[in-house]
Design a protein around this nucleic acid. Structure first.
Lengths: 215, 215
DNA sequence: AAAAATAATTGCAGACTATGCAACAATTGG
DNA sequence: CCAATTGTTGCATAGTCTGCAATTATTTTT
C-alpha cells in the first residue's frame, strides 16, 4: 500500500515546519540554555510568526519533548499479537520497540539534539515520558491482545486481562526509560544504536525476576 | 512544660500554608475544571497573595502534583538494604512502598482530592510521576545497596551495578504506577488501601516474568 | 524585654506564555 | 480559473512567573 510518497505539498510543508520548529528549539536550548530561549527566538529561527508556533505546539516544552514514536506496520504488530516472533513476551516487546526506534520518522539530527538536551536537563526526559500517554494506551491495547493469545483463559476475566496488560505496559515503559537513559549516557562518539540498548534492557528485565528469588 | 514539639512556629505556618494551597487548588480544580482555575483564584482561596503562591510552588501544576512521598525511617531502610524482610526483591520493595504510603505526611483529604483529580485528568498523573525524579534517584541508591548485599560480586563491576539498580528502580516505578492507577479506579466507597494495591502490584511483577516464558 | 538578625509576605513592574478572532495567503480540486 | 479548504499572521487580551524592594512576622541575642 505505502508504495511511494504521494503526499501533497500542503502536508509536506506542514511536516517541514514542524521539524524546523523542533530543530530550532533544540538548537537554541543547547546553545544558550533552556531558560534563555523564548518562543519569539524559536519562531525567528524557524522563520514563522510566534502565533504560528502555537498552531504546532501547545508550549515550548511540547516542542522540545517531540512526538511519541510511530507505531509499526500492521504486519509486524500482527506477528507480535499472535505470539511471535520468539514467544517470549519481554523479548518480543524489546524487538518491537527496537524496530520502532530504527524506523523513527524523526531526523537523526533531531534525535541527537534531543539526547544531548536530555542529558543536560533530566526533567525534560521525564516530561517526554509524561507526554507518551496516548502511545502507552495504544501499547496496552496491543499487549492485551497478545496476552489473550498466550493465555486464552483471560477471555473469562476481562478486567484481570486489562489490569495485567497495563502492568506489562508500565513495566515495559520502565525498560524503555532504562534503555534511553543508558543510551543518553554513552560516549557521544559511540555508535551504539538505541535499538541495541532497547533489546538489551528488555532482556535484562526478563532476567531480573528470575534471579531475584533467593535460595 | 516544653512538650517536645521540635518544630517552631515558623515551620508549622509554612507547612500549613503549603497544605492550604494544595487543598485549595485541588478543590477548585475538581469543582470548576482545571482550566478555569487561576493562580489568583487559588491564592484567594488559600488566603495568601498571588505572589506568595510562587514562593511555595513554581507553577499551578506543581501545586496539583504535590510532593513526592517521604522516605521511611533509617531502620526500616536498613532492614531492606540487608536483604529483608522476606529476601524477595520485588516483594520487599512492595512492602517498602506500601509502608511509605501508609505513613504519608499528607492529609487523607488531600490524597483523596488528588486521586479524584487524577481520574479526571490523567495527564496530571503522568506529570506527578515526572516530578518524582529526585525520589527515584534516592530509591536507586537504596536499591543499589540491596543489590550489592544480595550479590557481593557486583562490587567488582560498579557500572553494571548502577545500571542494574536503575533498571530495578524503573521497573519498580512501573509497579508503582500500576498500583496507583488501579487504586484510582476503585469505587469511591471501597475502603481498599493504596498500600494493599502496592503490595499486590509488586507481587504481580514478580509473577509476571516467571510465567512469560512459554513451553 | 528590647534590639538585632533572620525569614516570610506582599505589591509592583515587566517579560513571557497562550488563546480567540478576523483578515489574508497559499494549496487543492473541480 | 474559480471556489473551497487549510494555513499563516497580527492584534487584543488574559494569565503565568520572576526580580526587587518595602513591610511584617518570627527567632535569636543581649
Amino acid at each position: 500500500m505505502p508504495a511511494d510518497e504521494p503526499t501533497g505539498l500542503r502536508e509536506r510543508k506542514r511536516l517541514a515546519t514542524r521539524q524546523a520548529i523542533q530543530r530550532a528549539v533544540l538548537r537554541l536550548a543547547l546553545e544558550r540554555g533552556l531558560e534563555h530561549v523564548t518562543i519569539e527566538d524559536v519562531s525567528r529561527e524557524a522563520d514563522i510568526s510566534p502565533r504560528t508556533f502555537f498552531n504546532y505546539f501547545v508550549s515550548k516544552e511540547a516542542a522540545i519533548a517531540g512526538d511519541a514514536p510511530d507505531f509499526l506496520d500492521d504486519e509486524q504488530l500482527a506477528v507480535f499479537v499472535e505470539g511471535g516472533p520468539s514467544g517470549d513476551l519481554m523479548g518480543d516487546l524489546g524487538d518491537l520497540m527496537a524496530d520502532a526506534a530504527d524506523h523513527a520518522s524523526e531526523s537523526r539530527e533531531t534525535v541527537m539534539l534531543r539526547r544531548d538536551l536530555h542529558s543536560r536537563y533530566p526533567q525534560l526526559f521525564a516530561l517526554r515520558m509524561a507526554g507518551m500517554r496516548a502511545f502507552e494506551d495504544d501499547l496496552a491495547g496491543v499487549i492485551s491482545k497478545r496476552l489473550l493469545h498466550d493465555r486464552p483463559e483471560y477471555a473469562r476475566e476481562p478486567e484481570k486481562l486489562a489490569s495485567r496488560a497495563r502492568l506489562v505496559t508500565m513495566v515495559a515503559f520502565g525498560a524503555l526509560r532504562h534503555a534511553w537513559t543508558c543510551w543518553a549516557e554513552t560516549d557521544r562518539s559511540s555508535e551504539e544504536a538505541l535499538s541495541t540498548r532497547l533489546r538489551d534492557s528488555f532482556l535484562q528485565v526478563r532476567e531480573l525476576l528470575m534471579q531475584s528469588s533467593p535460595a
